[in-house]
């Protein structure tokens, strides 16, 4: 007696280590952007801009189609043991869309001279990417239900 109320379309699972690898690269890019943001906001803007493009691909097509997702599948995954179980690609794809918002604001900040704005949003992105890479914890997914509770009036 299960699934009385949940009917999800069957989706092909993805290796859960893929999104975590992607999050690690994302983390590195935002850390580098923050380190460069003082001496060269322009370089930081380029980095977060490129990351925004990656996020856009991940949100539009799925996290497995980002450059890091493709790299994971073609180079890294063949060298690993098969995963214990597969993961639904929907949550990480949603997280990519949340990341896109932060990357775009950070890029606008760095590019227009509102450096602190860029740094704050890059800082939030570091928190989210760190939690994802280190703890496999999806911050955007967690916020989703709270966001619905606050914004949607009726069920």
């Amino acid at each position: 007696m299960t699934d009385t109320a949940v009917n999800r379309p069957a989706v092909t699972g993805i290796d859960p280590r893929g999104p975590r690898f992607t999050a690690s690269v994302t983390l590195a890019i935002f850390v580098l952007a923050l380190l460069l943001s003082g001496p060269s906001p322009e370089a930081a803007a380029v980095l977060t801009g490129v990351q925004a493009l990656f996020f856009a691909v991940g949100a539009g097509l799925g996290v497995q189609w980002t450059p890091t997702g493709l790299l994971f599948r073609s180079v890294i995954r063949p060298r690993l043991t098969p995963p214990a179980d597969l993961e639904d690609p929907t949550p990480p794809r949603f997280a990519q869309a949340v990341g896109l918002v932060f990357a775009v604001v950070a890029t606008i900040g760095f590019a227009t001279g509102a450096v602190v704005l860029g740094q704050v949003f890059a800082g939030f992105a570091v928190v989210a990417a760190f939690l994802n890479a280190v703890f496999a914890f999806c911050l955007g997914c967690e916020m989703y239900l709270l966001g619905l509770r606050l914004t949607r009036r009726t069920a």
Binding site: V31, L34, G38, V115, Q119, A122, G123, F124
Partner: peptide
């Protein structure tokens, strides 16, 4: 410098 501080705070 601000960037470094924000990075530290974010990681902690």
């Amino acid at each position: 410098m601000t960037g470094l501080v924000i990075l530290g705070v974010a990681l902690v």
